[in-house]
């Protein structure tokens, strides 16, 4: 009895979470433009979507921004984590505290304050300023992902490498980095998704005419949603689904293989 109630509850929450997304997916195959009426199956919104200059332009910008921001923030964040681990506890706590500010702060404050700074320093808002802003809020996520792994492995093998005659540089690239790899990969993926998903910070730091998917959708909602956006959301959802499955399955497999090897 109790078990059935639990199941019903889980199912209700799942319906709540997925019904809106599924509605968009269904509507993307609707022949007509109406939101409330089904007028037959069609794929023509998908064809129109791929021909829509605005959508394709926004998609390109989103991917360029996310790729640069996540690569740069992964490099900076990983280097910082390694350094923070070796610092005195007091300095470490101050730096980790500072790391939390962009994470806990409201996006609107992050976005506006960055915009004010760009303007004050005479930097024209453009796609470049969006990338700089994205790097700022992506670094904390990378550090949070790499840090647990860095704590776990400690510095023993790095020091052993030094004792055996490796230069610090060599030990860093041959010992520390490979050991941190799982944390670095998940940090990179997290930074990439955060960047793709961001709207608010982009909204305030973008130059005129620069659109990402998020800002394009926001703009199109004001003038009236076209079903091409439904087609887009179906594709976004399926991409996220595949990426998340890959990101979850690959580490689990690697873990299993490692355990089998050890046994």
């Amino acid at each position: 009895m109790k078990k059935t109630l639990n199941r019903i509850y889980l199912v209700l929450i799942i319906i709540f979470l997925y019904a809106p997304i599924l509605t968009l997916m269904v509507l993307s195959f609707n022949n007509g433009r109406s939101m409330g009426k089904w007028t037959g199956f069609s794929l023509h919104w998908y064809a129109e979507m791929f021909e829509d200059e605005n959508i394709m332009d926004a998609l390109r910008n989103t991917l360029i921004i996310a790729l640069i921001a996540s690569v740069v923030s992964t490099i900076i964040g990983t280097a910082a984590t390694v350094a923070i681990q070796r610092m005195k506890p007091r300095t470490r706590n101050i730096l980790l505290g500072a790391n939390n500010i962009p994470l806990l702060n409201a996006d609107i404050v992050t976005g506006i304050s960055l915009m004010l700074m760009f303007v004050a320093f005479g930097i024209t808002l453009s796609m470049g300023t969006v990338i700089l802003a994205h790097i700022t809020f992506c670094i904390p996520y990378v550090i949070l992902s790499v840090l647990p792994r860095a704590r776990e492995i400690g510095s023993n093998s790095y020091e052993a490498a030094l004792d055996l005659g490796a230069t610090p540089m060599y030990a860093f690239f041959k010992v520390t980095l490979p050991e941190l790899k799982p944390g670095i990969i998940s940090g990179f993926l997290l930074a990439f998704t955060m960047s793709v998903d961001d709207f608010i910070v982009t909204h305030f730091t973008r130059g005129a005419g620069v659109n990402t998917l998020s800002t394009m959708i926001y703009g199109s909602v004001k003038i009236g949603i076209r079903p091409t956006i439904y087609a887009l959301s179906t594709i976004v959802f399926l991409t996220v689904l595949v990426l998340l499955i890959v990101a979850n399955v690959i580490p689990a497999r690697a873990e299993k293989r490692r355990k089998e090897k050890d046994a």
Binding site: I13, I14, L17, Y18, A19, P20, I21, T23, L24, L27, S34, M35, G36, T193, V196, D197, F199, L213, S214, I217, Y218, V221, I225, I229, Y230, L232, S233, V236, F237, V240, L241, L244, N248
Partner: peptide, 27 residues
Amino acid sequence: FVFILPMWMNFLLRTMAWQVLLEKGGV
């Protein structure tokens, strides 16, 4: 995974979905 997946879907699209559901001529 099932409960966290919607979080990764674009925030604007998720909000727009509710607009489509609740609109005067909506679903």
